[in-house]
Design a protein around this nucleic acid. Structure first.
Lengths: 319, 319
DNA sequence: CTGAAAGCGCTTACAG
DNA sequence: CTGAAAGCGCTTACAG
């Protein structure tokens, strides 16, 4: 490569990396770019990583749980935003431990954890100079400065407020049965609880709604006998199960029990009745995460929490 | 590291890589492992990659299209299978070109493309010694040796055969409107067409069903006037739209029009009526893909096409 | 059975 | 404005 352009390795490196404060003659630059094009040269990232100790990769670790539509959108957005900054987002689904070798393999600049983080692992990564961004706080107290957790809390709040605004004072909460969803559920549920407190209405009556229609029917009846008139479902899937259980017992939404989901999955509009749900503004969350990654390297440009609403209600017929 | 154990770099490398035909004294081995544990030493993958010219990473490139539940499962399974072979699967959503830098960054051993592959890009990767596995054939003719394409073809076949088996002779095909899904749709549709040919029934009447309920209603009426009695939907989402359109016009499934989807998404069982659909056996596809990756390096153990059914019908009420 | 040495392809002080 | 040289941490012939 250097030979083809008739210059030294050094100069090639300067030109290709646009090293500031290095004046390079325009003609030399040109010769180098020509040679690059001619040879189809691509710098070896392995060598660069070895030399600099870090690659330009940001590793996104996803929890091993049912990943929906929304999670994928988050991945896409984060990938897009960070690419503009020259960083390559690479995604990995967690699976317990074996990933240690992966972060060593990639020598990522940062690891964004959308999964539980074990203290030991975190320490090892940080010791290796990798920035660890924990976007998965279990405890709501920790969530204050965390866009993702904050948005989950907000989701619950938005659900409860919509129900209250349409006159409901006794609400239920339909939790999923999958234990891997428990942390997420807790965050959303806290949001619901807080909203209820603030609105001065009863705390939500929580029940696990599995993916069994008959069970959902029973639960719907129970809620009604307890005076519950509306329920926040953990997500749209749980809402579908509940709606199916209600139809089986000739219970109507929102008349007998109003139901509001979360996610606005593509089929939500085709539910019977069409599902009222909460749309998460994933772009805002992604921007928050991207900021956290970038803050380290570009102090001035980025600032605190991202602005913008994190979630809004999509009103259809079920609530 | 070598110093801590009181041996040379060479020996450390031999021990850690279990180099065959290198006899190392048990005591030396032990000293090295002890030092590894004590220092928390992790070999630099960047250096290894630089030296060997390849990392242990397999890059999975996903098309930029609505990725469902099924796609995610494929990613999970492939990750799991390949990890057992010491390979790290890393996933990236395609976005047009900018990924060139990524494969250079990772120096992956193989790239599995679940996205359209441009000839130029492919050539560059292969020139770099990267194995390229193209699991995205546009043309059904190319699909013969490709597990993924083959399974898509099979999906259509299974749909049509189920409909024929329940007495339908005039079937419709509900295609999605998203152009990014066109290639996939074509593969499935070919499967339907072939099954119709083999069964001696009319070719499917294809219509695009968007996510507009009223439009779906109109289309349902059209099909009925044309004598269509059952329809294969591209996937469960399209099926939901169609079912919603039918309910709006008091048309019943399967009486007025039978509907069968694809994917068995979690909410399919809660459709009104519960959706009959096709379950793709993603494990088989993943195994096929994994084989293709491994074939190159471990010739003997793996053989041709994976065995096993690729898709089966989940019978519920809509068809 | 073990080690000294070369070299993978970069980046970056440093010297001109 | 440009280049010679060191060194990042490995692997692997090769020599003992």
């Amino acid at each position: 490569m250097a030979r083809e352009a008739g210059v030294s390795q050094t100069t090639v490196s300067y030109v290709l990396n646009d090293v500031p404060h290095q004046k390079i003659a325009a003609e030399t630059r040109y010769r180098i770019h020509a040679a690059v094009a001619k040879l189809g040269y691509t710098p070896s990232a392995a060598a660069r990583a070895l030399r600099k100790g870090q690659s330009d990769i940001v590793l996104l670790l996803l929890a091993d749980m049912p990943l929906g539509h929304t999670a994928i959108e988050l991945v896409e957005q984060l990938t897009r935003i960070l690419r503009q900054q020259g960083l390559s987002v690479v995604t990995r689904i967690e699976d317990g431990g074996a990933n240690d070798s992966l972060w060593a393999d990639l020598a990522p600049r940062a690891v964004v954890m959308l999964a539980p983080v074990q203290a030991g692992r975190r320490k090892r990564m940080e010791a290796a100079g990798i920035q660890v961004i924990n976007a998965w706080r279990r405890k709501p107290e920790d969530a204050a400065h965390d866009t993702l957790a904050h948005s989950q809390h907000r989701v619950g709040e938005v659900q409860a407020r919509h129900l209250a605004a349409t006159g409901h004072r006794h609400i239920g909460y339909a939790a999923p049965t999958d234990p891997r969803l428990a942390d997420f559920c807790e965050l959303r549920l806290q949001g619901v609880r807080q909203a209820c407190r603030e609105l001065g209405i009863d705390p939500p009556v929580v029940r696990e709604v599995g993916s069994d229609r008959d069970l959902a029917t029973d639960i719907a009846h129970e809620w009604r006998t307890e005076g519950v008139t509306a329920v926040c479902a953990f997500n749209d899937e749980v809402a579908f199960a509940l709606l199916a259980g209600m139809r089986a017992a000739d219970l109507e939404a929102p008349g007998d029990l109003a139901v509001i989901g979360v996610d606005d999955i593509p089929v939500a509009q085709f539910a019977e009745p069409p599902l009222t749900t909460v749309d998460q503004h994933i772009g805002v969350v992604a921007a928050g995460l991207a900021q956290a990654v970038l803050r380290r390297q570009d102090p001035p440009e980025v600032s605190g929490q991202p602005r913008g609403e994190l979630a809004t209600v999509v009103v259809r017929q079920s609530a």
